[in-house]
């Protein structure tokens, strides 16, 4: 376990925003050039720090969306209307701006190509971000790990990386992609149209006998429900790695 601890390069870095991609009406990707960046593991995150002119600072965590093999670091930020940091990152950052961050952070919710498969990735909403790092084509090509990816979002517009994921599913038969849209579906939609439930998991997920490595990321209520269903279906709790965001419904 100690061998998978945070790599030694955890420190504050300054990147330069080179490109901004509007992924959905509320999610934006910032592509960063980071001189001397020593790399990360798929699933890790960084703490982004903003500093006001008078020295006031605010720090929040964001998952790394790029794969370890990608040349530039990418963060995808979902804009929270009541957020302190995300509206600035989504609305105000411009190409050429510097961005400070601490990282890479996290060693448990991380996947390496040599880890024992098959792989089951389950995303709710912007929980897709760290799973994208695990699903990037080169990572898969290197590993050959058969992967099933279940992605739940409210609407088709809210699907982040849809074109990229679709292309991956088209080109790699070891990558099986399933969407479910819980709130509204476009005309002709053939995917699922409900919240993730036990029946859907039975149809889509690897059976427990295959002992998949499971990575589950999304809002707290989503991951609580899905993790409970996976355990009830017979999946080993120790194989289910979870990253959650947000509060309970209190």
């Amino acid at each position: 376990m100690a061998g998978t601890a945070l790599p030694g390069q955890l420190k504050w870095w300054t990147g330069e925003v080179t490109e901004i991609v509007r992924e959905t009406p509320t999610a934006t990707s910032l592509i960063l050039k980071v001189p001397d960046w020593l790399g990360h593991r798929a699933g890790q995150h960084v703490d982004v720090r903003l500093t006001a002119e008078d020295g006031y600072q605010a720090v929040r965590s964001y998952s790394i969306a790029s794969a370890p093999d990608d040349e530039q670091l990418m963060l995808t930020i979902e804009r929270l209307d009541d957020g302190e940091v995300s509206p600035y990152l989504v609305d105000d950052v411009l190409p050429g701006n510097p961005l400070e961050f601490l990282g890479p952070i996290g060693g448990y919710f991380a996947w390496d190509a040599e880890m024992v498969g098959p792989l089951l990735l389950i995303a709710g909403g912007s929980g897709v971000v760290p799973l994208r790092a695990m699903a990037r084509p080169r990572a898969l090509t290197n590993s050959g790990v058969p992967t099933r990816f279940l992605y739940s979002a409210r609407t088709a517009d809210a699907l982040i990386y849809r074109a990229e994921l679709d292309a991956l599913a088209q080109s790699d038969e070891r990558f099986e992609l399933t969407y479910t849209l819980t709130r509204a579906q476009p005309p002709g939609w053939t995917g699922y149209a409900r919240r993730v439930d036990a029946e859907m998991l039975r149809e889509v997920a690897w059976p427990p006998e295959d002992d998949p490595a499971i990575y589950l990321c999304g809002p707290t209520t989503f991951v609580e429900v899905v993790a409970g269903q996976l355990v009830a279906l017979g999946h080993n709790p120790a194989r289910i790695r979870i990253e959650r965001f947000g509060p309970t419904g209190v």
């Binding site: 448990y108 993790a227 355990v231 979870i242 959650r244 947000g246 309970t248 209190v250």
Partner: peptide
């Protein structure tokens, strides 16, 4: 940024922000 009043700010350790909610962080199933 979102400044806190001095009394609240005094109670926040460095690098922390105030929440009224109760976020959940766990590595595995409950």
């Amino acid at each position: 940024g979102r400044r806190q009043n001095p009394e609240t700010a005094r109670r926040l350790p460095p690098g922390q922000y105030l929440t009224e909610r109760f976020p959940v962080l766990s590595a595995g199933p409950t």
